[in-house]
Design a binder for these strands. Structure first.
Lengths: 221, 221
DNA sequence: ATAAGTATGTTGCAAAAACAACAAAAAGGA
DNA sequence: TCCTTTTTGTTGTTTTTGCAACATACTTAT
């Protein structure tokens, strides 16, 4: 039996009344499935009709290159979605694998049904579509943001564009960032020690200063 | 007066009948505006209510860092959208500038209205929502794809993951890519000469071969 | 307070990349 | 055809990076 309390934590169901969630799980054919660790949930090449919601545990989105070398693209956990971009794309064909990283419970819903106004014309459709568009838009933004950083040729430029973003966002030359050094290096796809070296170099050149997660950028004189 | 023939070329209106396009331009408050070269269409910080469609000319999406250094993030032309991710995000605040790259004609539409079932219940809403979700999903995919390449530490790994993708996509170890060397280097954010050197190195190591846009990947023996 | 664990900074070195400048080949136009 | 332009490959040099290993601070739990 699907737990309604849990569904309320899933962003795509934001703003949907509890009573509507009941009709929703019927209307969207929601079903819960448990997977054992290392089980494949989707394979690359599968046609995807449903989106998955991780209720318990975690899944890895993985890719495999021509020579069979595997990479973990991302980790999905706590009430997050996977498969939505494939199930809504033209082909519907997944390019990646989805694997249970540990024993994991998944709720599947038939996302394409939210587009069809069903016979009982459940009022949650409108809310869910708005949520979906918002989720996809905002993810688009964060991805574009990240590409902006990664596209810079040097560690220094990557760092400055990343830090500039937070300065602009917080409207101050002095601000906090949400990542520690390890996470920051990983996010920017650079070597942590090289990053540390470059940060200190810029501090010596009086371009910026920092302590822990707090940074300050200096204007040119 | 807005040209219906032109709207039919815009992807978000795919599958909408010509007669519906007429009611649509009313329902969504479509309006056409001309901009002179170098005019700002949106500024970073603006709240975005409408999406723009480039009908004629081109616009540059630009970013400016803390020190005022500008970068062109992307170029939008021929019947493509801009502003949709901001207008549908939570805040609605643009983080980027949009500037007319030359004399340019834009059609603006109030995208959020497609969510509201209007009083005359125009039947195109459903189609447009489906198109929008598809556009956003597929863009998400291409962005994630690109981040996958950019995240690799070396030029060689960037190239191999990029080429692997096309091998997989075309289901053959021998395939064409859609970019020439310059474009490929730009897309992967690497130096063209370094890329060329690395490609030739891999050819010498019998990992792959190429001629123009045609590549072949070799299995390990 | 101590010990273990984590986060951050430091450094040497070898490998790789960026940059710049040029060579060669291919494509396109007059 | 010849000339120009574009594309691709080549190479030398300098700078930057990744990697590895270690030092130092800071946290956290006991």
């Amino acid at each position: 039996m699907i737990n309604i309390k849990i569904l309320k934590k899933v962003r795509v169901f934001n703003g949907i009344e509890e009573e509507d969630l009941y009709s929703m799980i019927k209307c969207l054919n929601a079903r819960e499935v448990s997977y054992q660790k290392n089980t494949y949930i989707f394979h690359a090449g599968d046609k995807i009709f449903e989106v998955g919601i991780v209720i318990n545990g975690a899944v890895h989105i993985t890719d495999e290159d021509f020579w069979g070398k595997k990479t973990i693209i991302s980790v999905i956990e706590n009430y997050s979605l996977f498969g939505e971009v494939y199930s809504m794309s033209e082909s519907g064909i997944s390019l990646v694998n989805v694997v249970a990283a540990c024993d994991t419970d998944i709720i599947f819903i038939d996302i394409n049904k939210i587009l069809k106004l069903c016979s009982n014309s459940c009022k949650f459709h409108y809310t869910m579509i708005k949520n979906l568009l918002r989720i996809l838009s905002e993810r688009n933004l964060t991805l574009i943001q990240k590409i902006g950083y990664l596209s810079k040729p040097t560690t220094r430029e990557k760092l400055l564009s990343y830090l500039s973003f937070y300065a602009k966002k917080q409207g101050k030359s002095s601000f906090d960032i949400p990542l520690n050094r390890n996470q920051m290096a990983e996010y920017l796809s650079i070597d942590r020690s090289a990053m540390s070296r470059e940060l200190c170099r810029m501090r010596d050149e009086k371009i910026l200063s920092f302590e822990k997660n707090h940074f300050e950028l200096y204007d040119k004189i």
